[in-house]
Design a protein around this nucleic acid. Structure first.
Length: 223
DNA sequence: CCAGACGTTGTT
DNA sequence: GTCTGG
DNA sequence: CCAGACGTTGTT
DNA sequence: GTCTGG
């Protein structure tokens, strides 16, 4: 799955995602946890970066805490599950990241890894979002990250991984056109193993309050 | 028709 | 063990 | 995802 | 909102 990621300090964010609101304040983040509000890319004619809460709150929700565990949606079933299905048509988004974390379980111990693509520092995860209003009419935007089966590289660490969008698919994913089953399978398929890298990081990354660059840095052996 | 659910993950 | 908060 | 908290009642 | 179950 994908339950923690980073959006470290980088240059070229706005051009990489072709966003028009270049005055958006981007604070570097090294340890983003569910329920937190982070920048997400959407398209409404032109690409914009907007703040959204991680954990999907469906439009019909009575309380926002339903979103606390809807941090991921399975690619294999996203087109059939009622909660996500309706969002596939027009509420697709890209979650910009410089890397995500997965914990490898070996017996009773858990080892955290920071996982990136090769090449550009920034890449995009496939997401879906929704708009929700509380009783007072205050609107909250929230999102979920689509996951898929691990490729051979990731399966050494975990059996699931987020959907990493190939850059050429990004405009298409942000568009409002409906996707055919075939297109969906293609866009949401696991990113190639050959394009990924990972390294072990300090166990302290487990504490979501530790939002510092150190938690992304290599520790011990590379993989 | 209305009522009630709508989700993922890992572990058991 | 299980739920909540970040 | 992990970390950290988790509770009522009546009586003092 | 939309789907499923009764």
């Amino acid at each position: 799955m994908c339950g923690r990621f980073a959006l470290a300090a980088v240059s070229g964010f706005y051009s990489r995602f072709h966003v028009s609101n270049v005055d958006f304040r981007l604070d570097p983040r090294y340890n983003i946890a569910p329920t937190q509000t982070v920048p997400v890319i959407v398209n409404g004619g032109e690409n914009k970066v907007v703040p959204m809460r991680w954990g999907l709150i469906p439009v019909w929700a009575k309380a926002e805490d339903i979103g606390d565990r809807l941090i991921n949606a399975r690619a294999e079933t996203v087109a059939t599950k009622p909660i996500f299905k309706r969002l596939l048509g027009s509420r697709r988004c890209i979650v910009p990241t410089t890397g995500f974390y997965e914990w490898k379980k070996e017996g009773s111990s858990k080892t955290p890894y920071y996982i990136r693509t090769k090449g550009e520092e920034l890449f995009g995860l496939a997401g879906l979002y929704d708009r929700w209003r509380d009783k007072e009419g205050n609107e909250t935007l929230s999102f979920t990250i689509i996951t898929t089966e691990a490729n051979s590289f990731m399966s050494k660490i975990h059996n699931r991984m987020p959907v990493i969008l190939r850059e050429e698919h990004e405009p298409f994913w942000l568009g409002k056109d409906a996707l055919t089953e075939k297109q969906l399978r293609r866009v949401l398929s696991p990113y190639p193993s050959s394009g990924m890298r990972a390294h072990e990081v300090m166990k302290a990354v487990g504490n979501p309050k530790l939002d510092r660059p150190e938690v992304t840095r290599p520790l011990g052996k590379q993989s």
